[in-house]
Amino acid sequence: MSKQYLTTHTVDEAHPTEIFSVSPTPSSLFSASGSSALQIHSTTKGGFPLQQTITNAHRLGCHHVCTSRGGVGNVAASVGFGGEIKIWARQGSELLPQHEANGEWELRWEIAPTQTNGGDVWAVALSADESYLACTTSDGRIHVWDLTARERIQSYETGGSGTGGSFAMAVDLSRDGKLTATGHESGAVYVFNNNSGRLAYSLSGLAKSVRAVAFSPGCKRLAAAGDAGVIAIYDMERGEHVSNLSATSSRPAWITSLDWNDTGEYLLSGALDGKVKVWDVARGVCVATHSETEGALWSVRWLPKNERALEPGMGKGEMFCAAGANKSLTFYREATGI
């Protein structure tokens, strides 16, 4: 059975240059592009209005912005092409950390490029409780920071003794906080146990660069994808490669982005050919494909289900957003029984 998704809204020219990364909170969506400003659009109000622009966030442009998967949405982190990480927080969130604050976003902390010992910072991920940040580097290292204490608490190396490893292009933290996964240029996927600080699994299956890794909400599965054009699904209890999701096309495009929906049933993927796909993981099939653009898609994300009343016209179906080279934010909504 296929699923129906409709384009519900497009914010044209949301950025002056191509959008490299988007990341949602329960009520808004961060987007980052080659320009220096971050944009925050509301995802609960009709028309997805611009809520806040953080100007001069990253002078050389920004390639990653992340919020926590499953978090309340008070913290965000972004990485600039210069290698600096900026941690953003909502005003008032220090006082009521369990609740979604209402204030504007402001800079809370900056991690300078020099604080990561060599390799340039690339991908970032925030823990579900929004208190830890994992970042990868171009020499294959992974650093974990405690955002409250503002210190580095863990570093993983993927290369041989101190030599640095393959460029770590993607990272994710499991929602239970136990695991860190990274995807590498070499095609390797590593999973670390955060409690022991050791490598838990070294996963094979993707021979080409891995550009996206994502833990399922229940932390039982890990999805990884990249230049091989297929999505590999790994079991996290045994560290086994359990299945591949692949398009029928014999020449699949590079996959740049992956995201599980809240129930863990569906995976969203975005690719360089401009196609965004929804996959039924259990059945291993693609249930929806959209290609609004021919330009590359760099980032696709489900919007977290929102308990609060949405404005009229926003619908109740599950929503996702896709963004990339065409500089626009395209929002899709599941068509429900109409």
Partner: peptide, 9 residues
């Protein structure tokens, strides 16, 4: 690069 690689060539 994209189209070639994307196309799997």
């Amino acid at each position: 690069a994209i189209s070639h690689h994307g196309a799997g060539d």
